[in-house]
Simulated scan of single mutants.
Amino acid sequence: MNTNLIGLQRDGADALSEQLNALLANYQVLYMNVRGFHWNVQGDNFFELHAKFEEIYDQLLLKVDELAERILTLGGKPLHGFSDYLSRSEIEEVKGVHNGHLAVESVLSSYKLLLEQQRRVLAAAAELGDEGTVALLSDYISQQEKEVWMLAAYQGRSA
């Protein structure tokens, strides 16, 4: 039998774990970027953005843990070194941003990348019959689409 402990085809689960590790790397870099925005934002919108960035990084941290645990559930090994994250992430490390609107633009562009990546991984998970990963990513996509709409509205533009 060539299935893992949860009944998924082993080769497919291994390939999906690799895709989830790439997603995990993007989440970790975005998490650190948003942490930096929270710490360093200045200006007229300091109070609202300081709180909003904390809300965002709290959500990202939960997702980081869920992704790592999903990789383990599939039989894979989650990446756990920042050098691994930086080498695999499509989201670039952002430093020294104090302007709230620039920080929000960075988050919006990162969410766009995550949404595109998550849709690809969701399709691969659906093809494998992995309802657990499909459900997880479906929830992430729904939540992030709403977040994009709200952040875009904050910036004075439509999503």
Rank of each mutant, 00 (worst) to 15 (best):
N2L: 14
L5P: 00
L5S: 03
I6A: 04
G7H: 05
G12K: 12
D14P: 14
Q19R: 14
L20D: 00
L23C: 07
Y27I: 07
N33V: 01
G36L: 05
N40D: 06
Q42Y: 07
D44L: 13
N45G: 14
F46E: 15
F47P: 15
F47N: 12
E48Q: 14
H50A: 09
F53Q: 02
E54R: 02
E55S: 12
I56L: 04
D58L: 12
Q59C: 06
K63Q: 15
V64A: 04
V64L: 06
E66N: 11
L67A: 00
A68Y: 01
L74N: 00
G76T: 03
K77R: 11
G81D: 02
G81L: 02
S83C: 13
D84A: 09
L86G: 03
L86Q: 05
S87G: 11
R88K: 11
R88L: 11
R88C: 07
R88W: 07
S89M: 08
I91A: 01
K95M: 15
K95I: 13
K95N: 14
G96H: 01
H98E: 08
G100N: 01
H101A: 15
L102Y: 01
L102W: 01
S106H: 00
S106W: 00
V107L: 02
L108S: 06
S109P: 03
S110C: 04
S110Y: 01
Y111F: 10
Y111P: 02
L113G: 13
L114K: 08
L114V: 11
L115T: 06
E116R: 12
Q118N: 13
R120N: 08
R120A: 09
V121E: 05
V121K: 03
A124T: 10
A126W: 05
L128K: 02
L128M: 07
T133W: 07
A135C: 10
L137I: 01
S138C: 12
S138L: 11
S142F: 14
S142C: 15
S142E: 15
E145N: 14
E147V: 15
E147R: 13
L151K: 09
L151V: 10
A153E: 10
R157V: 12
R157L: 10
S158L: 12
